[in-house]
Amino acid sequence: MPRVVIFDEFGGPEVMHVVEEALAEPAAGEVRVRMEAFAVNPLDQMMRSGASPAPVPLPQARLGVEGTGVVDALGPGTTGLSIGDPVILTAVPDANVRGSYADYTTVPASRVVVRPTGLGITEAAAVWVAFSTAYGALVEKAGMRPGDHVLITAASGGVGRAAMQIARQIGAVPIAVTRHAAKEDELLAAGAAAVVATDHADIVEAVAHHTGGTGADVVLDLVMGPGQQDLLKAARPGGTLVAAGFLDPRPAPFPAGPPLTVFSYRSFEHTLDAVVVKRMAAFLNAGLRLGALRPAVDDKAFSLDAVVEAHRHLEKGLHAGKKIVVTTS
């Protein structure tokens, strides 16, 4: 019987376990996807531990907002896809019910896109959440343009790396922010035009230096918390800050300082919009063809039966900001 990862209580990785469940039939307008691989995301960790911003009903909650596989069955009236099509999941807002940590999942047909040609299974499993979040925040929300100086926090993480690549593809100038100067060479190699290490430099002064004194046109804040005040000061008057992360759970004071446009962003805002998803997929496909976009994947892949170990790998930071992938076969 097909396997699925569930958890019945909140806690550490050990609360997850693999069970067998009957194969579900897709409803009208849905597809059933035979999963080949999925990525482990911080949101999965938050759901599992009880720290998710949205409630997670227990018991038998599922996990997984990202993955790739092959269309295995079509529900009544489903069009535009065929059995055997390789696809990527684009949105799983009800991951506690349809999560990708499984051999199979059913989703509305509008929530998958055809897997880009030439993209391997592990990369396909790890590409969508990071790149759609970064694209949605920077392009759709902030209106990033060529020549913009873009300040990116948590730059060594999956979304941060994707944001640097997307900025480069647009013709913008990505400035990476990290807490550790030891990551500077790695971030430059990943696409940063400049790196600000907050353990060695004042972020406001450093950004002024890298922007010729004008400040950042766009700030992508993937951390939040009290540190956001320094980011606001590093932006130019009239610039834009997009708060798209939650790595620091402490309150972020009400924005003060230069006049800015401030947005709060969550990826489902766009990944549930079929028109925007079409633009996202076209942008991603173009970037992949040109070699401008590529997901950073951890060297170690895990099997479904080792999903607990995969989460421990995430919590220990052994993935160095790269996506952790679990394969189902």
Rank of each mutant, 00 (worst) to 15 (best):
M1L: 12
V5A: 08
D8E: 06
D8P: 06
E9M: 14
E14P: 15
V15Q: 11
V19T: 13
E21M: 12
L23H: 00
A27P: 04
R32D: 15
V40H: 00
N41D: 08
R48E: 13
S49N: 09
P53I: 12
P55F: 05
P57I: 11
L58C: 14
P59K: 01
V65E: 11
G67E: 06
V71P: 03
L74N: 10
L74M: 09
T78F: 09
D85N: 05
L89R: 00
T105G: 05
R111K: 12
E123Y: 05
E123M: 07
A124L: 03
V127W: 07
Y135M: 05
K141C: 15
G143Y: 04
G143F: 04
M144Y: 06
P146E: 05
P146F: 09
A154D: 03
G157K: 00
V159Q: 00
R161Q: 05
A162C: 08
Q165E: 11
G171V: 04
A172C: 10
P174G: 05
P174Q: 14
A181N: 05
A182I: 14
E186Q: 09
A190L: 13
G191I: 02
V195F: 05
A206M: 11
H209N: 10
G213K: 02
L222R: 01
G225W: 00
G225D: 02
L231F: 04
L232N: 09
A244I: 00
R250E: 14
R250N: 15
A252Q: 08
P253W: 02
A256C: 12
A256N: 07
G257K: 00
T261N: 09
F263K: 02
M280T: 03
L284E: 04
L284C: 03
L288A: 09
G291D: 00
R294P: 02
P295V: 03
A296W: 08
A296K: 11
V297Y: 05
F302N: 01
A310T: 01
A320F: 09
G321F: 03
K323S: 09
V325E: 04
V326D: 10
